[in-house]
Nucleic acid binder design. Structure first.
Lengths: 326, 326
DNA sequence: TTGTACGCGTTATCAC
DNA sequence: GTGATAACGCGTACAA
């Protein structure tokens, strides 16, 4: 005798109690199936009584299409990515999808992780900014599994992409600088291999042929990196940072110099919760995380419905939040 | 003709290519099954060639036990919870489990979420501090699905619990205060219905019969809450906070008063990354998130193997990190 | 509208 | 050690 650990209530149990066939139960729980109102009522009553829940595993097996979506991201410790995770999970839930979370902190572990995800027959994959190289994602596209990138470069044909409007964001920053009369500008970014940094930087240079721009790119791109980089750029009038983490570090770096010379203004990008804290009061370009999540899920859902679509790209508008740091 | 979207490679395909039976393929991928080395080699070769991955959905259906673990948490925006999420996901992966992430930000949405999770036939559930009332979790225990709580009260018999050693943490704080000669102490916490706050507060009162302790409990328990509460407690010599977020807010609240009177020392609890930032340099009790995650998963795994176990509780040691705020 | 019968891809069982 | 066969729980074409 097989010892199955659990004794799940199955459709057959409900059918027996309701005095109908098993198919009737199945139809009751299948959206858009045809069941007599009276039968449906009987079934629902019996189901409630037994605490029946459709076994999604079995349903997936049968229909061949799962409602799992892989979310591949790195560094939950990064406040912006955490901030993005919430609406992402919520949006997926709205569409009836269940996220499978994969941590890509360790680049070496990414390949096996992606492989493993495959065996869950995910309906789609969302890859966020922090995650390492995604040549591996090709495996998904070959299998006609949609891949959506958030704030990443579209290294791959056939996958959709949503990103904050970096061009607009830098335009806002530059306009603000001009308005203030700052012409000697510094830029702090992560590695140039980082999509957000490189796109924001190239937007900046294209917008400011007339201004003096000195830039520092620091691997890692966290608080400490910003802190270090700012010290080398203290002669600027304004420091534009590719992320808020860099900006907050920069502010502290500048402050550590003492107040002998006037300190540069600092502008960030993201609007993480910490930007609003007293010691910073950071002026920053706010990313619309709700919007990013909504667009990403929408792209994914439509492509799941129909894989043969041209690659799409959506830019989500950003907003300048003026506080005291600039 | 049924139109299945994908053309997954199945065991049968591998079997055909390898010139063996489907069972041989299954055995090759089933840990601890008996296969001739030569057969295994043939199978592996064919599998690699076709890019075969075991269909976990089908395996789950058959064996009756899934490797899904539900993680129920609220507020990824809380740095401490984000910090905990990483090792949790990693630990689960180590044991071959796949986390299903449920956001419990909206208490009203929690009930349906938990119900839904049930239909994935999760092998177990982890509930973290932020999540709303868990009477609902009883549904799981009735079905013999293990539930492990992290930094929560064990409202329920039969579920395991892991928490930082709050008693020890408060002892460290109090010892430090005595050593410094502070006898007029303030405490800032979230609601008393919050487990961490209430346990830390009662530990504090039991440890300090001889000292004067005034306390403020503020719903929400974030940065703003700490900021507001601190102002009412500025007469104290030391402010002990139930979380780092409260502590950081408290420091800023105190600073906003100007430096007319000497400001109280501030000690936090968590050690989130922001505690180490320049403007704060917060002295705090560090929670061992790796340890919490490891213990939680261990408890879960052992109870999955054997449900009839007495309720267990594990306290994870904490550590005082002395910085400049106290 | 309802019930019967089959198939989804895998693992477990049982003869060989 | 290996291959045939029976489950696992559900959706659905088909016949009634």
């Amino acid at each position: 005798m097989k010892v199955k650990g659990k004794n799940w209530v199955k459709a057959e149990d409900v059918a027996r109690l309701a005095g109908v066939s098993r198919s009737a139960v199945s139809r009751t729980f299948t959206p858009g199936a045809s069941v007599a109102e009276k039968t449906r009522a009987k079934v629902m009553h019996a189901a409630d009584q037994l605490g029946y829940q459709v076994n999604i595993i079995a349903r997936t097996m049968n229909t061949g299409s799962s409602n799992f979506i892989g979310i591949i991201t790195a560094g939950f410790d990064n406040p912006f990515r955490s901030k993005l995770l919430s609406p992402l999970v919520n949006q997926l839930a709205v569409h009836g999808f269940m996220p499978l979370l994969m941590n890509a902190d360790d680049p070496d572990q990414l390949a096996p992780s992606l492989k493993q995800l495959l065996s869950y027959h995910v309906a789609g994959v969302i890859i966020t900014s922090g995650a390492p190289p995604l040549l591996l994602a090709e495996e998904y596209l070959v299998r006609k599994i949609p891949v959506t990138l958030i704030n990443r470069h579209a290294d791959l044909a056939g996958c959709d992409r949503v990103a904050s409007d970096n061009q607009q964001g830098m335009q806002l920053m530059v306009d603000y600088c001009r308005q203030k009369g700052w012409s000697n500008i510094g830029f702090i970014g992560e590695d140039l291999s980082n999509f957000s940094t490189s796109e924001r930087y190239s937007a900046l240079t294209s917008l400011t042929p007339d201004l003096s721009v000195s830039a520092r790119f620091i691997t890692g791109g966290g608080y400490a990196a910003g802190r270090a980089a700012s010290i080398e750029l203290s002669h600027c009038q304004a420091l534009l940072c590719a992320t808020d983490m860099l900006a907050l570090g920069a502010m502290d770096g500048l402050r550590s110099l003492g107040s002998e010379t006037p300190l540069p203004a600092v502008i960030g990008f993201d609007d993480i919760p910490q930007a609003d804290w007293d010691p910073y009061n950071l002026t920053t370009v706010q990313q619309d995380t709700e919007g990013l999540a909504q667009q990403a899920v929408d792209l994914l859902v439509t492509r799941i419905a129909r894989f043969d679509l041209p690659s799409r790209h959506r830019a989500v508008p950003v907003k300048l939040i003026v506080r005291n740091s600039a």
